[in-house]
Amino acid sequence: MSNDTITVDQLTDWLTRFRDLVTEQVSYLTELDSAIGDADHGSNMTRGMGAVVEKIHASPAGTVDELFKGAGMTLVTSVGGASGPLYGTFFLRIGTTAGPRTSLDAPGLAAALRAGLGGVVARGKAEAGDKTMFDVLSPALAAFDAAVDVSSDLSTAAHAAYFAAQTGRDATRALLARKGRASYLGERSIGHIDPGAASTALLFQALVETLGEE
């Protein structure tokens, strides 16, 4: 299997693995959210991704836009809270940007992901350092883009993104929250990893798992 493109089936596998990871780590995510939020991020993500994967299995998507628009809509209509619309928009924008293709090459996926990030920012207005999922998405996509610039291998790009995602996730610990529920805590938000940042890191871990070794 070439690592220069990613097919709808592989993208479906990505979402399925993401579902598996958030399910596996549901209590970790909820614990993070209980420290600086309302203790539901784990169950929100598990419920949402569970619904996404269930829908895909019931009627598998033929094209990339079908897959991600479906996933986005499902998240939007099943999660609620902040993460539902944010992750939902992320996937919706990936879908609309990718269009009715059956696979994406590295620049294609990079462009779709960047559009997804654009959707998150449009919705949530987060900036770097606000202690949100943005602080993982943004450096991860920067690393992805940089890798794509020098190589067409998607696996390499995914690894680079995941590495940056982990760094970004861990860096949220030191930040003072300025967006979402955690911002009410002010100073007391410092010292805890942001739950949305943690789940977003899992998204890139899932991509790495899907694409396999470099």
Partner: peptide, 8 residues
């Protein structure tokens, strides 16, 4: 944030 985004 959740209410704002979903109503939006």
């Amino acid at each position: 944030t959740g209410d704002v985004l979903n109503f939006e």
